[in-house]
Amino acid sequence: MNQPRILEVRTRILKDNDRIARDLRRQFVQTGTFVVSLVSSPGAGKTTLLQKTLTELSSRYRVAALVGDLATENDAKRLAESGVPVRQIVTGTVCHLEAAMIAEALKGWDLRALDILFIENVGNLVCPSSYDLGEHLRFVLLSTTEGEDKPLKYPTIFNTADVAVLTKTDLADAVGFDYAEAERSVQRVRPGMKIIATSSRNPDGLREYLGFLENRFQEFRCSVNGSSEK
């Protein structure tokens, strides 16, 4: 038996996930693929928003999606109606996506043929927050039907996201949604966070959101091209 020893380790528990995520991000930069993930509670409207997004963007950009769910391929089928490449990740009992699942799902895909890749996480406001997926932009969705205080109840997921997307604004009046209250909740858990209001039902309801996405994509491409010229 060895002598007892105290080893000062100081390492991230999820270091393996972080390493895979870092490798993915490096790969996405090399191929010029902008990667956007969506997290929210179940039923906040991720799939509907993504369906519209893919349809809208597919005429101008080469887009694709990965979609995570505990079971069924229903979401992949819905998203495939937009005519773009879609792959389902069935996680089984796992309540979130991990970087290794993304790496596995991307095998055999030519990322150079993609401008923007979307990743729809499993509907869950807790577990996905701990895992970096190598994405460049993380949207957290908050629907008007969920209540204004969701950010206060789930601060970590809002804190690890970059931008909040308010969905189902066409239902806001019907449910008495208080925009100012929701804004205050978001700012308490993520000071300075941008909030974009959307409605997937109204013809004009995604204009600001799509404009924001396209701007971010262009900035990404400029930074990638800039660094490759150096």
């Binding site: 007892p4 105290i6 000062e8 380790v9 100081r10 390492t11 991230r12």
Partner: peptide
């Protein structure tokens, strides 16, 4: 933080 700080071994 979500870190391993130290491990006591024998």
């Amino acid at each position: 933080e979500l870190d391993v700080i130290r491990i006591e071994t024998s």
